[in-house]
């Protein structure tokens, strides 16, 4: 039996960190992650696993379980606000959830088979992709288009509130969007993240859904997707209540605070800075995997 992250364990022992102290530290770190995630619109979930594994020396399985539950809580809280305002499209969400939930269950099953080092490398790559997607300038949105036949059958068109009155929109490329959602769901189940960046990309860029509706609908779908894979994690004993408690409460409070500041002022500089932090964590995860930091423990 070899420890998953020997350095972390020794540090913990040397400092004699109690559960109380560790819980306080994890709560503070998660609060910051949730705050920055909401402030930049990137979501805090993506930094939770690197934070827990690299900084606190937590085994990656526990980290993924804690992250999944926290992501579900935060997205549901955010979705509640968007739903009240009328942005999230429930029909689009339900259709795409067919893909994300099946992908999520598949991803969670795969995570149980893969060596932890492989999960760490995949995590690093997913972080790099998300840093890239968030750092690049906003893409032009091609507005019009022949509506998709499938979108018509499924009655996916909708409208959202705007200062100039309700705006209506149509939906295209349902098939391709559905496929991308399957991938997003799989990454979510495999890595314990919300895959919000990929979900928004699929809806906004591929399916031609307005950005605000895409963001709102993505948040709404994340809870359902996370619940699908969390069931697998729960039954295999990957969700530790003592560890998940400070993560969930921290991310939740942090993101609610972040959302308030976000509405008041949208900071332009913060986004590339946070994207830089994510890229740095990605390199750490990958380097850690090749440096023997993520070794399979006793399963």
């Amino acid at each position: 039996m070899s420890p998953s992250y020997p350095g972390g364990k020794e540090v913990c022992r040397a400092l004699v960190v109690t559960i109380l102290a560790l819980t306080g530290l994890i709560w503070t770190g998660s609060l910051l992650a949730g705050f920055l995630g909401a402030l930049t619109g990137l979501g805090g979930g993506v930094v939770i696993v690197p934070l827990l594994t690299l900084v606190f020396g937590v085994d990656i399985h526990y980290a993924i379980g804690a992250s999944l539950v926290s992501v579900a809580a935060t997205s549901s809280a955010a979705a509640a606000v968007y739903l009240k305002q009328g942005f999230a499209n429930i029909r689009i969400a339900l259709v795409l959830e067919l893909a994300t939930t099946l992908g999520a269950v598949g991803g969670a099953m795969l995570a149980l088979q893969l060596p932890t080092a492989a999960i760490a490398v995949l995590f690093g790559l997913a972080l790099l992709l998300s840093a890239y997607l968030s750092a690049r300038p906003p893409q032009p949105h091609s507005e019009t288009q022949a509506a998709d036949k499938l979108a018509g059958v499924l009655e996916l068109e909708g409208e959202y509130p705007d200062t100039a009155g309700p705006q209506s929109y149509r939906v295209r490329s349902v098939g391709l969007g559905f496929g991308l959602m399957g991938v997003a769901g799989m990454l979510s189940g495999l890595l314990g993240i919300g895959s919000g960046a990929l979900k928004v990309l699929a809806m906004d860029q591929v399916m031609g859904i307005p950005f605000k509706v895409s963001t709102a609908t993505s948040n709404f779908m994340i809870g359902v997707t996370a619940a699908a894979s969390a069931g697998v994690y729960l039954s295999r004993g990957y969700i530790d209540p003592g560890l998940t408690m400070p993560v969930m409460l921290g991310v939740l409070v942090g993101s609610l605070l972040g959302a308030r500041v976000f509405i008041a002022a949208q900071p332009k500089l913060l986004r590339p800075v946070f994207a830089g932090v994510i890229a740095l964590l990605a390199v750490q995860m990958i380097a850690g995997a090749f440096g023997g930091r993520f070794v399979d423990g006793a399963l």
Partner: peptide
Amino acid sequence: GGLYLAGEGASIPDYGVFHSE
């Protein structure tokens, strides 16, 4: 969480190695 910290807050955590719940 409050009950947990009141009861076990002073113990040493062990999250470094995965052993199922």
